[in-house]
Lab assay of single mutants.
Amino acid sequence: LCLSCLLLLSIWRQSSGRGKLPPGPTPLPVIGNILQIDIKDVSKSLTNLSKIYGPVFTLYFGLERMVVLHGYEVVKEALIDLGEEFSGRGHFPLAERANRGFGIVFSNGKRWKEIRRFSLMTLRNFGMGKRSIEDRVQEEARCLVEELRKTKASPCDPTFILGCAPCNVICSIIFQKRFDYKDQQFLNLMEKLNENIRIVSTPWIQICNNFPTIIDYFPGTHNKLLKNLAFMESDILEKVKEHQESMDINNPRDFIDCFLIKMEKEKQNQQSEFTIENLVITAADLLGAGTETTSTTLRYALLLLLKHPEVTAKVQEEIERVIGRNRSPCMQDRGHMPYTDAVVHEVQRYIDLIPTSLPHAVTCDVKFRNYLIPKGTTILTSLTSVLHDNKEFPNPEMFDPRHFLDEGGNFKKSNYFMPFSAGKRICVGEGLARMELFLFLTFILQNFNLKSLIDPKDLDTTPVVNGFASVPPFYQLCFIP
């Protein structure tokens, strides 16, 4: 009887509104179009389906209806031109279980708008005390260089060290202080973050999100993910309590202080979104989103620089000419370093880190290209289709910094550059991430030559594609002072 009810519900949900929705493959009861999707490479499946159904089409992941946007024109039209209507966060049952609708990444409505606005202002240095965020990134870059010196030019896997640096920048912003790379508390945090990104990138998590009943009734790695997140939240809560005892309202030290001051100002407002729970989840969101994405991009960047020594040589020549050896790189240098800027952009374009971004949702019934998309429908955007558009980027599967240079060698912007997504849900940490990528890479290449253990021609730069992110294959290298 239960199975029959489930089948009827499935057929009803899939057929309701079908005539007004964009076209798509016929879904099967309960499982939807899951058999037509390669869970290990969703992006490739979407590209293949777009050739049949066009740039806007409908898919069912289990009972979950999704409208897919494929190609620059439709992505821009939805996320930028109709930004407000497409600004919801799509259904993500596992995240909803962990975050309970709080924080910045998976919240919606008034809460999301207020927490996002506050976070953006704080990350842009408003009220962050005497030290700018650039100061913090430069300090961490110097520490990163010293850690790399300790390898003494012997072969090493850069994964751990390149993970520590961006994590420490976020820790400095949230908790005021950075950690030594051997600090046990810091190592515990890094371990949880690394384990979570591995778990999130498995097909099992996609299955849990498509069939949320699994979350409560089946064993699996999703339970470890929830446990790790609870551990992080508990740790952050302890630090919040310490801040409450030592805070000077006139001299905020970090993100937590800024949030607590905002809470104090709004304590008479019963509807205020500035609560301890929102602070803890927002801090966890910033740590989770700001560590692995940047560290994976850095790791991929070094692999691509090993593979293309001629590119590395040009970057180092530009560093020598603009910065020299006697001072630290700073963000002001970027405007005088078009080639280095182009390389950083090309790394992000080429690796296509989060191929389908995080799911959006429409906040109301939306008429879009003669289709009617009902309120609450999940929207999946193919960032691959934008970053690897062959008209904007000739030979998109090739790593080529000239994609971002004009004929005179000047840096050339592209509207198709969307590694952080676009519109109202664009990554809050975009400015910070771009600063980290530029400064960390210039600091490294100012101080070291990179040496591959094998012939650069034999290095494999093909991403290890998985459910969520594209990560580089394992490699080792030597940092030669």
Rank of each mutant, 00 (worst) to 15 (best):
residue 20 K to E: 12
residue 136 R to C: 13
residue 124 R to Q: 15
residue 249 I to F: 12
residue 178 R to C: 03
residue 56 V to M: 09
residue 294 T to R: 01
residue 117 R to H: 05
residue 129 G to R: 04
residue 327 R to Q: 04
residue 269 N to K: 12
residue 302 L to F: 12
residue 66 M to T: 04
residue 263 M to I: 10
residue 83 G to R: 11
residue 116 R to Q: 05
residue 180 D to N: 11
residue 481 P to S: 04
residue 442 T to N: 04
residue 116 R to W: 01
residue 165 A to V: 08
residue 202 T to N: 13
residue 294 T to I: 05
residue 424 K to I: 05
residue 105 V to I: 12
residue 295 S to G: 15
residue 333 D to H: 09
residue 153 A to P: 00
residue 291 T to R: 02
residue 351 I to N: 01
residue 434 R to H: 08
residue 253 R to W: 01
residue 234 S to R: 14
residue 185 Q to R: 09
residue 117 R to C: 11
residue 472 P to L: 06
residue 281 I to V: 15
residue 129 G to E: 09
residue 333 D to N: 03
residue 65 R to H: 00
residue 73 E to K: 10
residue 431 G to V: 10
residue 301 A to T: 07
residue 108 N to S: 10
residue 402 R to C: 11
residue 342 A to T: 02
residue 142 R to H: 13
residue 171 C to W: 14
residue 326 N to I: 08
residue 190 M to T: 10
residue 271 Q to H: 12
residue 350 Y to H: 08
residue 397 E to Q: 14
residue 328 S to I: 07
residue 219 P to L: 06
residue 394 P to L: 08
residue 65 R to C: 06
residue 330 C to F: 05
residue 368 F to Y: 14
residue 458 D to E: 10
residue 168 N to S: 11
residue 383 L to V: 03
residue 112 W to R: 00
residue 280 V to I: 11
residue 327 R to W: 00
residue 352 D to N: 13
residue 203 P to T: 10
residue 139 E to G: 08
residue 351 I to V: 05
residue 338 P to L: 01
residue 165 A to D: 00
residue 243 H to Q: 03
residue 398 M to V: 14
residue 142 R to C: 07
residue 114 E to A: 15
residue 313 A to S: 08
residue 12 W to C: 11
residue 259 F to L: 02
residue 271 Q to P: 03
residue 103 G to R: 02
residue 254 D to N: 05
residue 233 E to K: 06
residue 178 R to H: 07
residue 235 D to G: 14
residue 1 L to V: 15
residue 84 E to D: 15
residue 321 R to C: 03
residue 363 T to S: 15
residue 208 C to W: 09
residue 275 T to I: 09
residue 58 T to S: 07
residue 337 M to K: 00
residue 434 R to C: 06
residue 422 A to P: 02
residue 122 T to M: 13
residue 352 D to H: 03
residue 464 V to I: 11
residue 14 Q to R: 09
residue 136 R to H: 06
residue 47 T to S: 15
residue 65 R to S: 05
residue 276 I to V: 13
residue 449 N to K: 12
residue 101 G to A: 09
residue 94 L to P: 04
residue 54 G to A: 01
residue 124 R to W: 07
residue 366 V to I: 07
residue 450 L to R: 01
residue 141 A to T: 01
residue 11 I to L: 06
residue 326 N to K: 13
residue 352 D to E: 02
residue 178 R to P: 03
residue 216 D to V: 02
residue 21 L to F: 13
residue 49 L to V: 07
residue 338 P to S: 04
residue 346 E to K: 00
residue 436 E to Q: 14
